[in-house]
């Protein structure tokens, strides 16, 4: 039987069991990183924010600031969200000055297309980029709820607590996010990717 998050937290804090902490990270790293990637759209930045998040988490845990028994992931997600928002605010200042960094693909990224499965990878990459671009076009509050629900599997109630809004507001934002995304899919003519987009 898998130990719960809370059991791993206790093993780390009371016994200094670093393997317990590694299991916590391994268990949730994909969700957390997926959320951060969705928020900042840059792998290097997401890695930085991932590390910054866990450094804050470690410090807060050692200081005894973690008091939400049974809600470790939600607590970590709140710290990650704050880190991402801080970053986006700083970026916004730069974006006001220049928007020339839209194409973030480096020279080395372009070389990846030369691999044996280049066509297949390129096709997948295009599809991923295409949907990610549409998600990025959503209003920030809708995008955030969508990413939190799809990438991190938090419940709507947990998302409402995390984003400090009512449950109805969180649900309303999600509904508009899905509706807007559907419109974009229809407009782009790639409805075959969505199956039966039209009801």
């Amino acid at each position: 039987m898998q130990p719960t998050d809370e059991e791993l937290v206790t093993a780390y804090l009371e016994d200094g069991d670093e393997q317990a902490f590694r299991r916590l990270v391994d268990r949730h790293k994909d969700r957390l990183f997926g959320f951060l990637m969705g928020m900042v759209k840059d792998r290097a930045t997401a890695n930085d924010l991932f590390q910054e998040t866990f450094l804050r988490v470690i410090q807060a845990m050692q200081e005894g600031s973690y008091t939400q028994q049974g809600q470790w992931l939600s607590w970590v997600m709140r710290i990650a969200r704050n880190a991402a928002i801080d970053h986006i605010r700083k970026q916004k200042k730069w974006r006001d000055v220049s928007r020339e960094d839209d194409d973030r693909r480096s020279f080395w990224d372009t070389l990846e297309a030369e691999t044996p499965h280049a066509d297949e990878e390129l096709h997948r990459s295009e599809q991923r980029d295409w949907l990610d671009e549409h998600i990025q076009e959503l209003p920030p509050e809708q995008r955030e709820v969508l990413l939190l629900r799809q990438e991190t599997d938090l419940t709507f109630r947990e998302i409402a607590e995390l984003t400090e809004v009512s449950i109805n507001t969180a649900l309303g934002r999600m509904r508009y996010a899905l509706k807007n995304l559907r419109k974009m899919i229809k407009k782009s003519g790639k409805s075959s990717l969505a199956g039966s987009v039209d009801p």
């Binding site: 994909d30 997948r124 599809q127 991923r128 949907l131 899905l178 990717l193 987009v197 039209d198 009801p199």
Partner: peptide
């Protein structure tokens, strides 16, 4: 049905393109 179709699209997309892992 409209909401379900869009969610299915996202789920399919997620299954085909799993979230990138941190380094």
């Amino acid at each position: 049905e409209a909401l379900r179709a869009t969610k299915e699209h996202l789920d399919t997309h997620r299954a085909a393109h799993p979230s990138p892992e941190p380094d």
